[in-house]
Design a protein around this nucleic acid. Structure first.
Length: 413
DNA sequence: GGCAGACCTTG
DNA sequence: AAGGTCTGC
């Protein structure tokens, strides 16, 4: 393994973007399984690779802070520091950030009148031009179950990932665990990607290029790394893209309609309906794509009493289409985004958030609503809820209303 | 169109 | 089993 430049892990210079927690929650967005390459390297600090560079992100109430590591950044001195200072260095800068932020506005931030290229990359990656507060309100208005979940899981946002990284990562997900998938993607980058540098004893690599993935030696290599039968899919898909279409083909799928892009992806080995939907939603700007996996099928049956196809043994093509259409009908053109909020809320690692929530009542209330649906006219009730203003709020649900209002206000920033 | 079985490993 | 896909009835 090659020796890498050690990225500076000393005091960081942080830049910032205005962004509230209701618009973006880093922990949920980076940890909900749409990407496999971000790690929480310090409390609330997320480090990963994006656009061929290593980034660390963190957030305060109204601000998203970022630091981009420079590959040639003071190689000699930071090497020494990196070895001895280690994590302490980043803890220090973390403290500095927090203290400084408390006392005055953005002291450590580079104040730059014009938007930097890095800020542009970040805005694009997190799709910050999409107003998540507005969307949550629309989904919630149409769907009581979503409304309950949304209070506990705000800021779950779709990333706009690199299509190559997204496609080849998700080919690895079939019949697999998330924990194992993470390790596999890591080894894929380590084995075939360009080294970007080392930080706190961890080496970072770019995601492999198509040409590297397409090499005929790749299947055997990846099988040795524990990819199993997926090794062949990865190599063959890369080969097929380059031979039949060219290196820019995946990017080009961003500008054609959802169903066309999905069918195009499904011609690749190892890419079925579910993986194709993930790639469409997470990297090809198809917000209406709703990936239906075993979890989402359970959610549909359990939380939406979705009966059609529940007699089926497995997720057939028809079940895919029907459940997808059901959710698109319910949530509208950004159904894929809404789906990821519920998917996130269903992950085992986030269950503690439900117990911690002051709105723990939600499950009970939901069950009560179910009963009411059968006896009372549902339409009337929902109309009442929508028209209620903060002043009119009854003590029982005051807490919930307030949360909703704050989502709305922060979303406008 | 739908269903079974195989497919590689390992948390 | 696990965030599926492919092949053959």
């Amino acid at each position: 393994m090659a020796k890498h430049a050690v990225l500076s892990s000393g005091a960081k210079l942080w830049s910032s973007v205005a962004c509230s927690r209701s618009e973006l929650r880093l922990d949920l967005t980076l940890g909900c399984g749409q990407t496999f390459r971000w790690r929480e390297t310090g409390e609330g600090h997320w480090t990963g690779v994006m656009g061929g560079r290593v980034w660390t992100l963190t957030q305060t109430d109204d601000t998203l802070w970022y630091h981009v590591y420079n590959n040639q950044d003071g190689e000699e001195s930071s090497m020494k520091r990196g070895a001895s200072v280690s994590l302490q260095g980043s803890n220090k800068s973390e403290k500095r950030l927090k203290e400084d932020v408390k006392e005055e506005e953005e002291p450590l931030a580079v104040t730059c009148a014009q938007e930097t290229n890095e800020e542009k990359m970040l805005r694009d990656y997190f799709q910050l031009s999409v107003n998540l507060g507005d969307l949550y309100r629309e989904w919630g208005a149409a769907d009581p179950h979503f409304r309950h979940i949304a209070n506990i899981f705000p800021g779950v946002r779709m990333l706009r990932q690199d299509p190559t990284e997204c496609l080849f990562s998700f080919i690895c997900t079939s019949n697999n665990h998330i924990s194992r998938i993470q390790g596999m993607v890591e080894r894929l980058c380590q084995s075939l990607g360009t080294p970007l540098g080392q930080l706190d004893q961890t080496s970072y690599y770019d995601f492999p290029q198509l040409s590297a993935l397409a090499d005929s030696s790749v299947e055997a290599r990846l099988r040795d790394l524990g990819f199993g039968y997926r090794a062949r899919f990865l190599q063959q898909s890369a080969r097929q893209i380059l031979d039949a279409h060219g290196p820019q083909w995946l990017q080009g799928l961003r500008s054609i309609p959802y169903l066309q892009a999905r069918d195009a992806l499904r011609t690749l080995p190892g890419v079925g309906t579910k993986v194709a939907d993930c790639v469409c939603l997470m990297s090809l700007d198809k917000a209406e794509a709703v990936p239906i996996d075993t979890h989402v099928w359970q959610i549909a049956k359990r939380d939406y009493k979705y009966a059609a196809g529940s007699g089926q043994k497995s997720i057939t093509e028809k079940v895919h289409r029907d459940i997808g259409d059901f959710f698109r009908g319910l949530w509208g053109p950004y159904a894929g985004w809404a789906h990821s909020v519920l998917f996130c809320a269903d992950l085992k690692k986030f269950q503690k958030l439900k117990e911690m929530s002051p709105l723990k009542q939600w499950k009970k209330e939901e069950e009560e609503e179910e009963v009411e649906k059968k006896t009372v006219k549902k339409k009337t009730k929902m109309k009442m809820e929508e028209n209620v203003t903060v002043k009119d709020v009854k003590p029982k649900s005051a807490c919930q209303r307030k949360a909703k209002m704050s989502v709305k206000n922060e979303g406008m920033v």
